[in-house]
């Protein structure tokens, strides 16, 4: 048996035969649980395999709670199909897989907003792939770059680049928006010459293909 049922989990064993699809179907039909977990061990399953499993479970009205695997390819296939996945690291794991596992983890878990407290002074550059929140001023000569939105709880007097990876819906918000230059995605704009009125939070965004500054919206 290449597939069996243990500890409330469906476990796939190392040497899956060619006819494992059949085996899996037999197993799943017998189960009357509404939710299952999958432990794929070291099996390498591609997107077609996972999709097959998923479709079968949906047909039988069974929810897949999560998928555990030691194989990074399986994890990537599964998560690309929207399953909850956990990578279990083997003890005698080889180095390459470990590195891959970490880089994968970094990409997928690091969606958090980057937070910086303190004034950014001339010459300093703060860069992130995600949203950016600065509590403090961005002085002339300093630069902030974010893949997502930029929010500055303070004055923006330097250069800000939101949506640096091409996200045109990114915006830049600051308590006082008086930048040298604004960039959103690939658009560039010079900052306004006149001093803005104090006490109004402003937001820069792309509208009709140009960067405009507006009073900040409370909802998005």
């Amino acid at each position: 048996m290449a597939i069996n049922y243990q500890n409330k989990k469906i476990c796939f064993h190392k040497d899956l035969g060619k006819d494992w699809h059949r085996e899996f179907e037999d197993l799943i039909i017998k189960k009357d649980e509404r939710a299952i977990e999958l432990d794929c061990g070291e099996c390498k399953l591609n997107c077609y395999d996972i999709d097959y499993i998923k479709t079968l479970c949906i047909d039988k009205n069974i929810e897949i709670i999560s998928l555990v695997s030691q194989n990074i390819k399986t994890i990537i296939s599964a998560s690309s199909l929207g399953l909850n996945t956990t990578l279990r690291l083997n003890k005698n794991i080889n180095k390459n897989t470990a590195e891959l596992a970490y880089s994968y983890k970094d990409i997928h878990n690091d969606k958090s907003t980057k937070f910086h407290k303190g004034t950014l002074r001339a010459g300093e550059v703060l860069e992130t792939n995600n949203d950016l929140l600065v509590v403090g001023d961005v002085n002339p000569g300093a630069k902030v770059i974010a893949g997502g939105n930029i929010m500055i709880w303070g004055r923006l007097l330097g250069i800000a680049h939101a949506g640096s990876k091409g996200n045109t819906s990114a915006s830049i918000t600051a308590l006082q928006l008086r930048p040298v230059q604004l960039r959103i995605a690939k658009k560039v704009a010079r900052g306004p010459k006149e001093k803005p009125e104090e006490g109004f939070t402003e937001e820069a965004l792309i509208e009709d293909d140009i960067i405009v500054i507006k009073p900040a919206r409370t909802t998005k």
Binding site: L120, R121, A122, G123, N139, P140, G141
Partner: peptide, 12 residues
Amino acid sequence: VRDADRVIGLLN
């Protein structure tokens, strides 16, 4: 002022 700002950053 700009240069001073840069230096302050480095001192910090």
